[in-house]
Nucleic acid binder design. Structure first.
Lengths: 105, 105
DNA sequence: TCATAATATCAATATATCTTGATATATTAT
DNA sequence: ATAATATATCAAGATATATTGATATTATGA
């Protein structure tokens, strides 16, 4: 029950839905890329990414000080069906702003 | 987006998860049956049933003063996958206490 | 080691959701 | 119409979650 509610809680937030679709489209991105693209402050992003990771949607690859987030594969049936459902919604996303080596955000 | 969040919000509550599984197992039940079985006060049940109905999980058949709630069929892929996921959790449920005609709850 | 940059966590406030008790609505029987 | 029953809704307090700004942690390079 607990793990299921963790999953549904993760899905029950507009910011996290947008992050999931964005990461699914644009592949592994570091926090500062997302920060620039979404115009959000870092602590807010970090919190939402942690929730999505702990709910089993994301994986993190650390490269030095950077943390690259991407959709975890393979996803189980429920999570991948949720992701598929999200894609039918036609959510408007910001353009990707990718940092070139040095971030300084 | 709004409809999706309505669905995830409905799934993001332990009481509603238990109601969903219970209704899936025991078919159409009126509020007073659920009230007796779960030992919950009526207003609480009514509220949760409304949320599940508006999120597309339940349908209601009115028969006189009784309102019979059951799982809506057919469910779309996301909702039925959610229901399937719930069943893998092995949630403990109360025994069904069915009213015999007159309710008086 | 020290400075800098990227990310994570904490504390406080704001917002949303759940529960309860009271009240309202609707249907049936007298 | 009145009374009784089943269900729905409302208002208030309790609990949980989101956002923000500040601080802590971690890794890199001088």
């Amino acid at each position: 029950m607990e793990i299921f509610l963790q999953t549904t809680a993760a899905l029950n937030d507009e910011t996290r839905i947008r992050l999931l679709t964005f990461l699914d489209i644009h592949g592994p991105l570091c926090v500062c890329d997302l920060q620039e693209s979404f115009g959000m402050i870092q602590s807010r992003l970090s919190r939402h990414l942690k929730i999505l990771k702990e709910a089993g949607f994301l994986r993190v690859e650390r490269q030095g000080t950077w943390a690259y987030y991407s959709i975890r594969t393979p996803l189980d049936r429920f999570r991948s069906e949720a992701l598929a459902e999200i894609f039918t919604l036609g959510i408007a996303l910001p353009p990707l702003i990718k940092q070139t080596g040095e971030c300084k955000v």
